[in-house]
Amino acid sequence: MKRRSDRWTVVRFVAQSATVGLAIAFLVVLVRPDLVNPPRERPNAPVNSYADAVAASSPAVANIYTERTLTPPGVGAGGTLRGGFLGSGVVIDREGYLVTNWHVVQGADQIRVQLADGRVAAPEIVGTDPETELALLKIDLPDLPSIELGWSDELEVGDVVLAIGNSLGLSQTVTMGIVSATGRGQLNVAVFEDFIQTDAAINIGNSGGALINSRGELVGVNTAVTSSSARNQAPPAGIGFAIPVNLVRGVMAQLIEHGRVIRGYLGTEVVDVSSREAAARGIYGPAVQLRTVTGPAESAGLRAGDILTHVAGQRVFYRQQAMNIVASTQPGERIEVRATRLDGGTITTFAVLEERPPQEGS
């Protein structure tokens, strides 16, 4: 009996030791998983590889497929066609908000979002802002990836950037380039323009996709490429444009909170005035001229034909600049406006801004 008792004592000791050992091993794996599955080393990895940046951001870049009913030119009633279109989008957070270009979803009868992991969802349109070419969608799926947002105001010409999107229907296509310029406007792509210019290749299907920096942070939303107006001439290569992420942040926040973007409105239409034309009025450098005057501008005493030189204390040189200053000011705020009259006189006045009326497609 004693020998049998000793045997069971040994068995219990071994079992207890094994249990304790497994518990310790579990804790080690929980705290230091790298000891069991060490990170994959790439002994011959290129020094200038951007694989880590792509791996961190690409799961949040989605394909967008839309269908629209089209009426070809010259075709009467009943001659409509259904067309399929490509685009891209970026999952901004794990709640399912996804940003893309307005033209990607404009007029769509059906929208389908496909994530990088293959899952498909029909999104809700939270809001659109045609004036910046942005749209915000929302998808309802668990365990969504998201992308880290960078700061576009930190970009400098020469910084490396990568464009990720559904290029020509080839999902998760990555192209590389540099920032060629910042603050590009007067492209007639959107009403309010402040584009990042890049030579990273942007093709059909890339619209709404991610422009990331070398750390994998989103710095822009790819939007447009230049086109050639000359017949039988290929479009210029290496010139694409992206909406800066700082602008995306503001538009997204307002669409979530209000369903629209609230902007200031002066009640004017303006056109650019060249340096030569301005000089004839005694103004040094280009400026903008009022074509029509209504609402707040009319109440402030401005007239059609006045040449604006300063808005809210800033010297304005171009139409786009003046519009951006007014739009970025909240309705109800009072701003100072300085202008030169056609007869050579000057006026300094104050206008209380209204809310900019909704634009087509908003």
Rank of each mutant, 00 (worst) to 15 (best):
G205T: 06
S207N: 11
G208Y: 04
G208E: 06
G208A: 09
G209A: 02
G209L: 00
A210Y: 01
A210V: 06
L211K: 09
L211W: 08
R215C: 03
G216W: 00
G216F: 00
E217Q: 14
V221T: 03
V221W: 02
N222S: 13
T223G: 13
T223W: 12
A224I: 13
V225Y: 01
V225G: 06
T226D: 13
S229C: 08
A230E: 15
R231K: 11
N232K: 06
A234H: 04
A234R: 10
A237R: 14
A237K: 13
G238W: 09
G238Y: 10
G238R: 04
I239A: 07
I239K: 06
G240A: 15
G240L: 07
F241E: 05
V245K: 02
L247G: 02
R249G: 03
V251G: 03
L255P: 01
I256H: 01
H258L: 11
G259P: 02
R260T: 15
R260H: 12
I262V: 15
I262K: 04
G264D: 06
G264P: 08
Y265L: 08
G267S: 01
T268R: 00
E269Q: 10
V270A: 10
V271I: 10
V271R: 06
D272L: 09
V273A: 01
S275V: 14
A279E: 09
A280D: 14
A280W: 11
G282Q: 07
G285P: 04
G285I: 09
A287T: 04
A287V: 05
V288R: 00
L290P: 00
L290E: 04
L290W: 04
T292Q: 11
V293A: 10
T294F: 12
T294I: 08
G295T: 04
G295W: 02
P296H: 07
P296G: 09
E298P: 00
E298N: 12
E298D: 14
A300H: 05
G301I: 11
G301Y: 03
